[in-house]
Design a protein around this nucleic acid. Structure first.
Length: 439
RNA sequence: GGCCCUAUCGUCUAACGGUUAGGACAUCGGGUUUUCAAUCCGGUAAUCAGGGUUCGAUUCCCUGUGGGGUCACCA
């Protein structure tokens, strides 16, 4: 290993970028970084019809968000002159020729540049898959450019990888059949052969390849809008097709750079499991500092809930109940936070606890008011309220006889955080008033 | 269909040719001072099939089957 490692990820801006590509980019990035090498991002935009600037902007924004920043970024559309030189040389050397064509489809040329196929067997050793052999005879004289200034994919890939001295081509297995063509071109232009690592495909629930044409597949950037953490996305994607072997599954980018092993990659495709992503996102959420958590929750909360003195007390309750930021917004939209800010509507029937009589419930509520009243304002904390109320509850047939109606009176919800914390958040006056009203 | 790749719990995966086939997510059951959440403990669950090689195959070989990819003047 005397040569400096150079990897590249080469998306084409012809559609909305999805998570499958993130994993390829990530592995290229990890391998380059762990070898103190270089990671190149290349926009394969030679197809003028299909390429769109907004798609390119999309993946650039994505990698910025994920902090998978390339050492070099460039576009193939800006390198036409370079490809032209190679094309001319290949024609001059007899490796390619201008071919007269019959036009079968609209937009086709009556003259294209074809590669003169030597029709031989090509074998290469893939880091993931091992030895693979293709007979290139099946490939015929394939087209490498529409004209000298309109090069096609196979030619530009080989020229760029050669010029930029890419040492490791790490890409999805959908490219495996492209490899023999590209090796043929390498041999024609005198380029050395890089190491290949063809990654197992990431599959959807139906076990088919994730595709940008599939409306079911969520574009990668939308995960940001759903409130996922970049580190969680990276962590999760890294673990489809590779695994460090221990029992730990939660890693930061830095840890991944250290642990990643290109030589221990799975051969078969893996299904994308969004439940595990959610779990992992929560794990990363738990590692964040309270300050960061507060900042994020604030931005995801509806405006009317942001600036109340109540808000500051809500963070622990919220963070416990979400796995991604988007759920903060969901909670608020579902009205699960409203009772902290305003008196809830009470349904008499729901105040009841199992078989306890209404009189008993009312009595318990009165008892609660009486004891809480005696608490000083500044002693109205979760801990003290809990101790106070528990003292009463423990003397009842079951604690629920007191705790349920109190909780319901305060929240107006069948399901909510416990009554002690709600009481401490809304304060003494509000608590007493709600209990009174319930009676 | 041709060519190529592939096969461990539902899912992601671990296991120098020798393990009670391990972990995680999900699921189920229970504890955790009422519900939800969080948390803890426990359970169910897998080597595609058939042949070899071997004292011994999840592991190596062959065949079958299943799954996937690819067959453009797209990338």
């Amino acid at each position: 290993m005397d040569k400096k490692v150079v990897t590249r990820f080469a998306p084409s801006p012809t559609g909305r970028f999805h998570l499958g590509g993130v994993r390829s980019a990530l592995y290229n990035y990890l391998f380059a970084k762990q070898n103190k090498g270089k990671y190149i991002l290349r926009s394969e935009d030679t197809d003028k019809e299909r390429s769109r600037k907004e798609y390119e902007a999309g993946f650039l924004e994505l990698f910025e968000w994920l902090e998978l920043r390339p050492d070099i970024f460039f576009r193939q559309s800006e390198r036409t002159e370079i490809y032209k030189k190679y094309l001319e040389k290949m024609i001059a050397d007899g490796f390619a020729y201008i071919s007269k064509e019959e036009i079968k489809k609209e937009g086709e040329r009556n003259e294209v540049i074809r590669f003169k196929n030597p029709n031989k067997k090509i074998s290469f050793s893939d880091i993931v898959l091992g030895n693979i052999t293709f007979d290139t005879t099946d490939l015929k004289d394939f087209v490498i450019a529409k004209s000298l200034t309109e090069p096609l994919y196979h030619l530009t890939v080989v020229v760029d990888d050669h010029e930029m001295e890419v040492t490791h081509v790490i890409r999805g297995q959908e490219h495996i059949a492209n490899t023999p063509r590209q090796i043929l071109i390498q041999e024609a232009i005198g380029a050395s052969r890089p190491f290949y690592a063809h990654l197992p495909l990431i599959l959807g629930k139906d076990r088919a390849k994730l595709s940008k044409r599939d409306p079911e597949v969520i574009p990668a950037l939308e995960y940001r809008d759903l409130g996922y953490l970049p580190e969680a996305i990276i962590n999760f994607m890294a673990l489809i097709g590779w695994n460090p072997g221990g029992e730990t599954e939660v890693f930061t980018l830095t840890e991944l750079i250290e642990k990643f092993n290109l030589y221990k990659i799975q051969k078969s495709g893996g299904v994308f499991n969004s439940e595990k992503l959610d779990w992992l996102n929560k794990e990363h959420l738990k590692k964040m500092s309270p300050k960061e958590i507060e900042k994020n929750i604030l931005t995801w909360l509806p405006e009317k809930m942001r600036n109340s003195e109540i808000t500051a007390k809500l963070f622990p309750i919220i963070i416990e109940r979400i796995s991604k930021w988007g759920e903060v917004r969901d909670m608020a939209e579902r009205g699960e936070l409203d009772f902290f800010f305003e008196q809830p509507k009470i349904d008499k029937a729901k105040l009841a606890y199992k078989n306890s009589s209404p009189e008993k419930i009312a009595n318990n509520l009165k008892l609660a008011i009486k004891t809480l009243e005696s608490l000083e304002e500044k002693k109205f904390t979760t801990e003290i309220i809990k101790n106070t109320l528990m003292l009463i509850a423990d003397n009842l047939e079951s604690r629920g006889e007191l705790l349920h109606p109190v909780r319901y009176a305060l929240s107006g919800k069948e399901k909510s955080p416990d009554p002690f914390i709600i009481a401490s958040i809304i304060g003494k006056n509000e608590t007493l008033s709600r209990l009174q009203k319930a009676i």
